[in-house]
């Protein structure tokens, strides 16, 4: 009589489909990941129930930080360079080619135009460590207004303006920024907010 052999099942499982799926997802996330561009200052945006997405291109962002400093950012490298050249001409500040290129690729900034050349000479790491003083936007010296004007000139018909304020920033500064925009006859702009999940009253 032969022994009844218990057929031993192998404890390993075929992982091929799982691996397939995992790599598919890895590839997908790698390709779609848009890394957050470096921001000059951390801003905690207020929440709203609005669902209009921020335009991806042709936009300038005016950031108002918690401490009231104002920062400016625009997308599109060639346009940025043109904007800086216009600004340089107006304020009589000279920029080297290196500085121009550097300005083209960097993110938002909050430095008065006269300090901009030195700031652009720093490496990105050093720039991140510098305490930026913010762009002057009061009635005495309103550089922000000129940035807005020249940014708009690079693409007059499509340029969208977004204001990104910190929820705790003082309204006084925001008022100044908005007044600056209204003075330049920019009456429509966007306020950047985070999405809030909440109850919406039935739309009639």
């Amino acid at each position: 009589m032969g022994k009844v052999k218990v057929h031993r099942k192998s404890p390993s499982i075929d992982m091929t489909p799982m691996v397939d799926l995992a790599f598919l997802l890895v590839t997908f996330f790698m390709l779609t990941a848009a890394f957050r561009p470096p921001e000059p200052v951390a801003v905690d945006t207020p929440k709203s129930e609005s669902e209009i997405p921020l335009p991806e291109s042709n936009r300038m962002i005016i950031t108002v930080a918690k401490d009231g400093k104002v920062f400016f950012d625009m997308d599109n490298q060639p346009n940025r360079k043109r904007m800086l050249q216009d600004m340089a001409e107006k304020y009589g500040v000279n920029f080297t080619n290196d500085q121009l290129n550097h300005f083209g690729v960097m993110g938002g900034f909050g430095v008065p135009i006269r300090q901009l050349p030195q700031f652009l000479d720093l490496s990105p790491d050093e720039q991140a460590q510098v305490q930026q003083p913010g762009i002057p936007s009061d009635s005495v010296n309103n550089e922000l207004a000129d940035w807005v004007v020249y940014a708009r000139l690079t693409n007059p018909s499509k340029m969208r303006i977004a204001v990104k304020g910190d929820r705790d920033s003082n309204y006084k500064i925001v008022k100044q920024v908005i007044a600056t925009l209204i003075d330049r006859r920019i009456l429509r702009f966007n306020l950047i907010t985070g999405l809030e999940q909440g109850e919406q009253i039935e739309k009639k």
């Binding site: 799982m18 890895v26 957050r36 209009i52 921020l54 925009l181 009456l187 950047i192 907010t193």
Partner: peptide, 30 residues
């Protein structure tokens, strides 16, 4: 598989999902 999932987790967590929304405002003219 370990590595694959590690990468997967990393990319899921770092991808921004573009959560920024905006609100359109129209101000009265002066």
């Amino acid at each position: 598989v370990d590595l694959a999932f590690l990468l997967l987790t990393f990319f899921i967590l770092t991808s921004t999902f573009n959560k920024s929304k905006t609100m359109e405002v129209t101000m009265p003219d002066k």
